[in-house]
């Protein structure tokens, strides 16, 4: 009862903290000066059509590097928590197990290459259309999930995952250092030609960086999914 009252008080306090926001926020016709300068300068300076991508990869590139690192830490944490759990008490009674039906297996075999190609398409075209490394990585992780569910892939090789992740993370930092050496600063993508806006090879190193992010995110989320999946108990 006391706890309930306390939560109610907390929600009311949240409302009180929010009240000035409700009073002042309204429809605006303009954006902040920083955003305005991004909108005006970024397309010409970087040659990338999607400004969200420019902000993520270039202007807030260090943020993204840290964010991918946090993702790596969380993924490692999930694997660590489940690695103890899996082997300790499993196998006493086999979980009732239904193999995926033949339709699912065949359909997954047809769909999986399409899904992976789609994921790669999303992160390679991240600087032109909505999408990018994070979305493409998630699509690839969903493809891995489908492969695991349909039994196309029974065991995910963790060595391969960690190698992929390591290489893409090191590549990310290396591209950033190349920007420091050849262009304006850390993670400056302009050491490659910026090209013409709207073509695939434009935006300097933005597609390279975003592809590396895509591979890294895909490997990390596949690791999380594989760690959380209940192991099929084999007699």
């Amino acid at each position: 009862m006391f706890k309930r009252l306390f939560s109610l008080v907390l929600v009311v306090a949240l409302a009180a903290a929010f009240f000035p926001l409700f009073a002042t926020i309204g429809d605006r016709g303009d954006v902040s000066p920083l955003a305005e300068s991004y909108l005006a300068d970024a397309p010409d300076a970087l040659g990338s059509a999607n400004l969200v991508t420019s902000v993520i990869v270039t202007y807030r590139g260090l943020d993204t590097l840290g964010e991918v690192t946090v993702l790596f830490a969380a993924s490692a944490g999930v694997s660590l928590v489940f690695s103890r759990l899996g082997s300790s008490s499993d196998g006493r009674r086999p979980v009732q197990n239904h193999a995926p039906s033949e339709l699912v297996v065949t359909g997954a075999g047809l769909l999986l290459p399409l899904i992976f190609v789609f994921g790669v398409f999303i992160f390679v075209h991240g600087h032109l259309t909505p999408g990018g490394g994070f979305q493409g990585g998630v699509v690839i992780a969903s493809g891995v999930l489908l492969a695991l569910l349909a039994g196309t892939l029974t065991e995910l090789s963790h060595g391969m995952l960690s190698v992929l992740e390591m290489l893409s993370g090191a590549g990310y930092v290396a591209v950033g250092l190349l920007g420091l050496w050849l262009a304006g600063g850390f993670l400056d993508p302009r050491f490659l030609p910026t090209g013409e806006i709207g073509s695939l090879f434009s935006g300097g190193a933005i597609p390279v960086i975003y592809s590396l992010v895509g591979i890294k995110v895909g490997a990390e989320l596949s690791g999380v999914i594989d760690a959380m999946r209940r192991r099929r108990v084999v007699e």
Binding site: N50, V52, T53, L85, V95, P130, G131, G132, F134, Q135, V138, V139, A141, S142, L145, L221, V224, I225, M228, R229, R230
Partner: peptide, 29 residues
């Protein structure tokens, strides 16, 4: 914000649900 919409549709409604269901099935097992 179509970028955010893509991310939310792929992560929030697909992968998060799957992760929740995996955890719940482990608890039940």
């Amino acid at each position: 914000a179509p970028d955010v919409a893509m991310t939310e549709a792929a992560i929030g409604s697909a992968l998060t649900t799957v992760v929740f269901l995996f955890a719940w099935s482990r608890i039940r097992s």
